[in-house]
Design a protein around this nucleic acid. Structure first.
Ligand SMILES: [Zn+2]
Ligand SMILES: [Zn+2]
Ligand SMILES: [Zn+2]
Ligand SMILES: [Zn+2]
Lengths: 418, 418
DNA sequence: AAAAGTTCATATCGTTCA
DNA sequence: TGAACGATATGAACTTTT
């Protein structure tokens, strides 16, 4: 809208907005070469040529890749700040503003479009969870410098820093439930190793796949099924999570990739169960609530088809586990080490690893609830997991089909296979 | 939207869409060379002479650009308020009033003209729509700051029991798939230890609980429920079976007794599943066939009450496992080493033993069927086992109540405790 | 060294209120 | 009117982690 109204204006000065290359002809008027002075602000003559790199968005000199494309520092900052506000921006002109070092700040909309156009990826922007994790580490680092401590090596199971401020609570688990409890106790007492492992695992999960404050916006839900379409980012986190697991890192790269690809969609499903609120029948996130009915109305028709089954599965998990996130974390690992994924070459090895996590899951139930409850919940949760996998196997191609091309490059990138 | 307000304005600046090359002529109006120069180029950051900027309209000191021209705060406000009221203003003099810090407020008309002259652009004044949006955003921001709640309430939800009912039937029992198979094989290759153990276990079972030669006669069924009344004999066999298991023999005698008492009724149930013929809906034994309907007619009224559930469970086992007796044997062991039996004093130890058999069960499924089938069957069969136990726990007292006095002496006898 | 984030001084726009 | 002030968006400089 808008602009067209100018056409018929009779006179005067025609301030040019953002145009850039302009050099073309009409400099007749002002023309002083110097006036090229594009921007008032940052006009600093760069020391250009520092490197031969040039920002793909505005042409300014660049230092290197930012969010998967070579850009200057300003476009990098710009992208980080606006990549998720696409809908809020709009072009006052004709959506084809030229973007260069001088005009870049005049039209955010077109600037952002160009960012996407040259390949910048918003899923490479760290989300709240990742940022938070970063900060925590930062604090720790600082503390350490102040108090050069004897760091503890890495234990068998992979000790990290269970300390920090894990957002998670696996309270009910025998707190520091130490040692000797009544031998006839109906609940198991997890071993120190198991406890340490679980703590670490949970911490790692919180710092990677963990749901924090930046889950998809409601608007995003409205336009597409984020549980599926934000695959890129989640896969990335999944990889981060997996790489913290020793059992995973000791596998060959090919195997790692097969497992990641195999678990991807399942991981997303398991993860989404955390967000599902059975009472409200909605997906909750710190940034909003989206009832499934809204999703049903808005999600793409294809995805819509599966929405129901997805919700059903989440309901089952929720019904069985309540808000126990620890189980879901363990399930993530169990799903990762699934021997049945196609084209796996050493199923037995994977299965053996999975066995250990299955046992851990059982022990967890025995500890958190009771031996008797564990007898019921252990197979129950595995059945749901199976049901989920049956579903994802059946429709995986459709569900991921839009993203399958997205996953591969990410994996390759992560593994530096390029 | 918004811009429509421009239409009727006679003389004004025409913002040019950025895309164009135009840029050019915007400065024509601002003829004075000086006005162009200073800022843009000269105002290089760094040197930040806070005071080196001067209002292009009145000469007052300026902070920076306002509506695309360097002006003081007052001219900035003046412009915002009058830019769209050009026609309402009139010069009472000769349209060439001098404008400076002192005279600027005397003639609005000439002041505004000068504003345009130095390049101020009214299109840079936010229109209502933009202002409105801005306000909304502002409000949101404030609200967020005030209510930075990141609630993740989610209530407690109780779980029920989502066990599954698979509809699969497996026919033959493939001869223990042996040795080296393709690494990518979909079935596991049991280790020698596992194979040997299973073979032995099966053999032991056949020689104890497996014996059916002297199963109750049809007539016996007709007169009483043998599943209960033959307890004595079966318990004896159960003990024989258990004593062949190393893990069992290493336990204390008290523990052994607790386990045997605990598994007794379950053992009978599991065993009966072997005899149940789903097709005929009858219990078969070498000595005859007894349809459940007959049992229903003849069994004692109390027991009759449970007959149905019993059959239901047997059906489930049969449906899932077909005629695979090996699984039932393993289940016997798993049931034996159940950590939840009452008055057990060292549950963790028992549970750990059970873990190994659970893993064996999983491996067995993986070997006999496939990793994928195992994923389904493993939890499925455990769910049935749980269901069975729920049932026996619920009605165990009734079911065994007549025999409880019978079991104890047998156990004492066997263990020679006297 | 590469690439993600963070900090902070600027630049501008709008709002208030004397 | 216009000074003072508040909110945002930018982008250069700098910190961290890998
Ligand atoms: Zn740029
Ligand atoms: Zn534009
Ligand atoms: Zn002025
Ligand atoms: Zn005048």
């Amino acid at each position: 809208m808008a602009e067209s109204t100018f056409d018929d204006l009779p006179c005067s000065s025609i301030p040019t907005p953002p145009s850039s290359e302009t050099e073309s002809m009409m400099n007749m008027s002002a023309s002083s070469p110097d006036d090229v002075r594009p921007q008032r602000v940052g006009s600093k003559r760069k020391i250009k040529n520092k490197e031969d790199k040039v920002c793909g968005v505005c042409g300014d000199s660049a230092l290197g890749y930012n969010f998967d494309a070579i850009t200057c520092e300003s476009c990098k900052a710009f992208f980080r700040r606006n990549a998720f506000k696409e809908k809020e921006l709009k072009c006052v002109f004709e959506m084809k503003c030229k973007i260069d070092v001088n005009t870049r700040r005049f039209c955010s909309y077109c600037r952002l479009q160009k960012c996407f156009a040259i390949g910048m990826r918003k899923d490479m922007i760290l989300d709240e969870g990742e940022k938070k994790r970063r900060m925590e580490k930062l604090v720790q680092t600082r503390d350490k410098k102040k108090v050069p401590k004897t760091d503890i090596p890495v234990t068998q199971i992979k000790m990290e820093e269970p300390s920090s401020t894990s957002t998670c609570r696996l309270l009910s688990i025998p707190p520091p439930s130490s040692f000797a409890q009544d031998q006839t106790s109906n609940t198991r007492c997890l071993s120190d190793d198991e406890l340490a492992f679980l703590t670490t695992l949970q911490a790692n999960y919180d710092m990677s796949l963990g749901i924090v404050a930046d889950e998809p916006l409601e608007e995003e839900y409205k336009t597409l099924d984020n549980l599926v379409n934000s695959t890129g980012r989640i896969i990335r986190r999944l990889i981060t999570f997996a790489k913290k697991i020793v059992d995973f890192m000791t596998l060959s790269q090919e195997t790692q990739i097969v497992l990641l690809k195999g678990t991807s969609i399942n991981s997303i499903y398991i993860r989404s169960a955390t967000l599902y609120d059975a009472v409200k029948d909605a997906w909750v996130s710190p940034r909003g609530v989206v009832s499934t009915s809204i999703l049903k109305r808005t999600a793409g028709q294809i995805l819509n088809r599966f929405q129901e089954d997805h919700v059903k599965i989440c309901r089952k998990f929720k019904k069985l586990l309540g808000n126990d996130s620890t189980v879901l974390v363990i399930l993530q690992v169990i799903s990762l080490f699934s021997p049945e994924y196609v084209s796996l070459t050493n199923r037995a090895i994977i299965s053996n690893i999975q066995d250990r996590y299955l046992t851990l899951l059982k022990h967890y139930f025995e500890a958190k609830f009771s031996y008797r409850e564990a007898r019921r919940m252990y197979p129950a949760v595995l059945s749901i997991l199976d049901e989920m996998k049956m579903f994802t196997e059946e429709h995986g191609r459709v569900l991921l089909h839009v993203n399958v091309d997205e996953i591969e490059p990410i994996l390759l990138e992560i593994f530096d296979i390029r």
